[in-house]
Design a protein around this nucleic acid. Structure first.
Lengths: 200, 200
DNA sequence: TTGTCAACTTTACACAATGTAAAGTACGTG
DNA sequence: CACGTACTTTACATTGTGTAAAGTTGACAA
């Protein structure tokens, strides 16, 4: 009964993630997913309205597995505004590679599917909250650069931390994940700190 | 003969651009383009191998109309490295909104089409050349921040000037084109100048 | 034991968009 | 007038999404 129902649904979601994160990247057509899950293609439509619906569900499914909220919340415990900004930047920067593949498909699907667009938009707004909190903490400490007000600084940080920028940095620029994080730390300091730290 | 041939080809390319840049955004299926051009759908396939081929041709067609090379070359005449960087950033920043729509489709198509990916990749590499030239000019003046070597600074500037970042800034952040340019000028100064200028 | 229900399978089809194929038309030029 | 080029028209193959409906299976209840 309900257990079986849930199992099949989970099997499909897991199959979607397996395909999305497989190396080399695999196609994720409805038939690919159903085959991977060991069910019929039609069974997928019993659980998910359409491809966008399945993808959005897979996104939430991955969130649970990664315990997304907890990871990002950790940055809120930092003492100083500067520590908090760096903790947030590092947490998010390390989170991106884990969601990158599914984010890419969701973004791509957003061009044609309203629900997918809305799902991604929500995530981005949540993410902006995190940026705002970090910038506000900096501002509260009086360590935010006078060159920016909090709104502009938030938007700028938000832009810098985009999935596309991670992709460009680690892809086109050929930076390692470590280098990406180092550069992110350096640039956020130079941009947002009232008194930027010099690189060693 | 050849004149007619060229005219039809041009009509198709112009139709593609008209649709791409129309407000509100229109679909650009092969049939939409042919209808807009006033020719049969099959006529399009007489001139272009496939959709990707048409789109790449439309990109070059737009380049000619915008006199792309000349516009970006202008930044090379600046005297100081700082002026040169700002001239380049402004030129490119003003160029993006004019190519944005077609760039977006080309990027999207790059996911599935090898030729489209290659065409976009070439453009991006050309663009990186411009970034490198600007950073090199700064470095030659001794005004490049010691926090970066020229390679890293080039990659960072390259990332900052991406089409995606323009899109995010003017879209999600809701910045005007003027504000986008202002913030770009400010951030590039703060990041790359050995002795950053303070904002007014 | 039989009946019923839900979950799943199987088969079939509609639809949209790309791309191929080939016969037909029309017009300018030798 | 004959010919070739450019274009049109019609038709069809292909791929992937999504809908529809009949058939199967197995657990559970009366």
């Amino acid at each position: 009964m309900s257990t079986t129902h849930t199992n099949t649904r989970t099997k499909i979601l897991q199959a979607m993630l397996d395909l999305l994160f497989s190396e080399p990247p695999a196609k994720t057509r409805m038939s690919d997913v159903s085959t991977e899950a060991g069910v019929s293609r039609q069974a997928v439509y019993l659980h998910f309205k359409n491809r966008a619906d399945l993808l959005i569900a897979a996104t939430h499914f991955l969130d649970e597995k990664l315990d997304t909220d907890a990871r990002l919340a950790a940055s809120r415990t930092a003492q100083s505004g500067q520590d908090r900004l760096q903790a947030f930047v590092t947490a998010w920067g390390n989170y991106i590679p884990e969601i990158h593949r599914i984010a890419k498909v969701l973004i791509s699907m957003s061009e044609t599917d309203e629900a997918a667009a809305s799902a991604w938009e929500t995530r981005m707004q949540d993410m902006r909250e995190g940026c705002a909190a970090a910038i506000d903490a900096l501002n509260a400490d009086g360590t935010l650069s006078p060159d920016f007000n909090t709104e502009d600084a938030t938007d700028l940080l938000w832009t810098m931390l985009s999935v596309h920028n991670w992709e460009h940095s680690t892809g086109a620029c050929g930076w390692s994940q470590e280098k990406y994080l180092t550069m992110l730390a350096l640039t956020t300091q130079k941009l947002f700190y009232a008194d930027p730290v010099k690189a060693p």
